[in-house]
């Protein structure tokens, strides 16, 4: 009997250790950014391609080349309502005192400078594919944007999702930096980098499973709008029959082939894409057209 209890204790300890190991905050190797120098001008492209302003500007803020990343937009989901934080250059309320490796751990590993897991409403499941050089450049560009002293608001997430540690289990199951689609040309590689990494298109256009992870077998085939109203469209060639010209023009102007215009969150995305080069917009078109 005594032996049984002892085995049980050992098993419990082992189980606890496995849990702690699985749910730990996994950061990047300390030398990840070694030898990289920052270019804020290149960082501006990374900023627009990554759509930072779409979520981190104040609700209803107008489009701008130098936005104030005040936070406050709400993102309802099946797990609760997430509120985008202040990521302006303010050292207290924003992320002005972050180092480049802090930003890299946030974007590529979903871990805060204090070692806490971020919720995957922050699209690090896509950003994980971003090149460290691009994070370093983005870090330099973010420092040029205005500071806002508006405090970040807490998320409204209920039990058990309010236990941040559990996000570690989610990451263990779902977080990986593999590409989703093959890319056989330089243009397709660039398009894939914008769509799968920085642009994080799959976060809205791909359906999610019961635990909120993107179902990669149904990549970009559309999903219910998380607001509960309407649908985010399937953008694979099976459903989207727009010509190359029409797609690229939509990314520049927001006009659909029948001259309706992008609305809702996609209007933010068009504002970002419009600030990229025509070659980048064409690369996104090429990637979408090559989807199965």
């Amino acid at each position: 009997m005594k032996r049984f209890f002892l085995s049980l204790c050992v098993l419990a300890l082992f189980g606890g250790a496995v849990f702690l190991w699985i749910t730990r905050a996994n950061t990047l190797p300390a030398d990840t950014l070694e030898g990289l120098s920052a270019d804020a001008t290149r960082g501006e492209t990374v900023f627009h391609a990554s759509g930072c302003a779409s979520c981190h500007t104040a609700p209803g803020a107008d489009s701008s080349n130098a936005p104030e990343l005040t936070g406050g937009q709400k993102f309802p989901s099946d797990f609760g309502t997430f509120v985008a934080p202040n990521i302006s250059s303010d050292p207290t309320h924003g992320i002005g005192n972050w180092t480049a490796i802090d930003l890299a751990n946030a974007m590529l590993r979903g871990v805060s400078p204090a070692g806490q897991h971020y919720y995957p409403a922050f699209p690090y499941a896509s950003y994980i594919r971003t090149q460290p050089q691009d994070v370093v450049d983005l870090h330099a560009f973010l420092a040029t944007l205005p500071a806002s002293d508006t405090p970040s608001q807490p998320h409204d997430v209920g039990f058990p999702f309010n236990i941040r540690r559990s996000v570690g289990g989610w990451k263990w199951l779902y977080l990986n930096d593999d590409w989703i689609m093959p890319a056989s040309t330089e243009q397709l590689e660039r398009g894939r980098y914008i769509v799968e990494a920085m642009g994080h298109c799959g976060e809205c256009h791909t359906p999610r499973n019961a635990l909120g992870a993107m179902d990669q077998s149904a990549w970009l085939t559309g999903a219910p709008d998380p607001s509960g109203k309407g649908t985010i469209p399937n953008i694979t060639p099976a459903e989207l029959s727009w010509s190359d010209t029409d797609l690229t023009y939509y990314f520049e102007t927001g006009f659909t082939p029948d001259f309706d215009s992008a609305g809702g969150h996609m209007a933010h995305v068009v504002e970002n894409l419009a600030r990229l080069t025509p070659e980048d917009r064409e690369a996104v078109t090429a990637y979408l057209k090559a989807l199965p």
């Binding site: 107008d62 309407g230 520049e252 102007t253 215009s261 992008a262 209007a267 419009a274």
Partner: peptide
Amino acid sequence: AIGAVGGACGACHKAYREPAN
């Protein structure tokens, strides 16, 4: 001139139009 027209359409649709079904 057409970019600004698209921007004006999008500004209102961004803030005030529900997603399509």
